[in-house]
Nucleic acid binder design. Structure first.
Lengths: 153, 153
DNA sequence: GTTGAAATTGATAAGCTGTCTCAAGATAGT
DNA sequence: ACTATCTTGAGACAGCTTATCAATTTCAAC
């Protein structure tokens, strides 16, 4: 829809998320900056990251990119619906919502081990519950807490 | 099993959790203190608390009870299987595992409406996943995020 | 292309939770 | 009761995230 052209800045491809971000920015009188583009493209390449991780990853591309900017930008992505924050232990994980290899977590309360899993049947039932209540699901979070085999001795 | 007697200290009732705690303490060469008893009885009266909340609640009964002691004791309860730590936002919630009034949430990202629901079939599948991975579930958390009928126009 | 108001950035200070330290005090086995 | 050992309380400390603010960048209007 409409005509796009790359402009003077090199644009590898037109990403859906980039448009989502653009719309969110326009809607809130925010601006599209080099840093936001940089962080978004790096973010979209992974399933979930911490701010600290991205800070080190991006240090190569832009040594002066500040940690505060990364936190601010990741939180912006959450507001735009591109990312989802999740608190694990003392850290915050930012999940890439578009990654549809959506996995849920099984967490051992004894040793902290985290096992990722996926269950289509559960997802189907979630949709059913949502529909019954008039909702359309965008994303979800399922965490099962318990003791792993080793911690039960 | 075995003979209990209240001893010189007034004991209102013999709670299952108090015995669980006693066993855990004995098993690890730990001691039963006035503070641990105080914190446990207060903890069991609620579904979930933060350390800070208990700190204020218990200030009336024991003004000198330290915050560090509450953190230490709540973590001890987790190890004993009485409590369950969960990171919510920036804080840690300690859930009372014995409270089984479990409900899940459907959250509208548009207007913030929260609908509670319960689905036995999902719970059954959760158990299945856990078993397959060698886990025994103590508790879980399921949140579905999406748009409600009204927010979709 | 310039201009200028408004948003953003980077560096660092500050804030918030939660843990560690350690001397003083409590507990429990003998 | 005695003593080794654990626990406590108070504050210092540590890790993660946000606030501050001067300098810079964006973008819409000229």
């Amino acid at each position: 829809m409409g005509v796009f052209h790359a402009g003077s800045r090199a644009m590898s491809k037109t990403l859906k998320e980039m448009d989502v971000l653009r719309q969110h920015l326009a809607k809130h009188q925010l601006k599209l900056t080099r840093q936001r583009e940089l962080i978004l493209t790096a973010f979209l390449r992974q399933e979930h990251v911490t701010a600290e991780t991205m800070y080190h990853q991006l240090a190569k591309k832009d040594p002066h990119l500040g940690l505060a900017t990364i936190y601010r930008t990741l939180n912006l992505f959450c507001e735009a619906g591109i990312a989802q924050a999740r608190h694990f232990g003392t850290q915050t994980q930012y999940d890439n919502i578009s990654h549809k290899g959506h996995h849920d977590h099984l967490i051992c309360t004894g040793c902290g081990t985290i096992v990722e899993f996926e269950n289509c049947e559960i997802e189907r039932l979630q949709e059913e519950v949502a529909t019954k209540n008039g909702f359309v699901i965008q994303t979800h979070r399922l965490e099962l807490y318990g003791l792993c085999a080793r911690c039960r001795h």
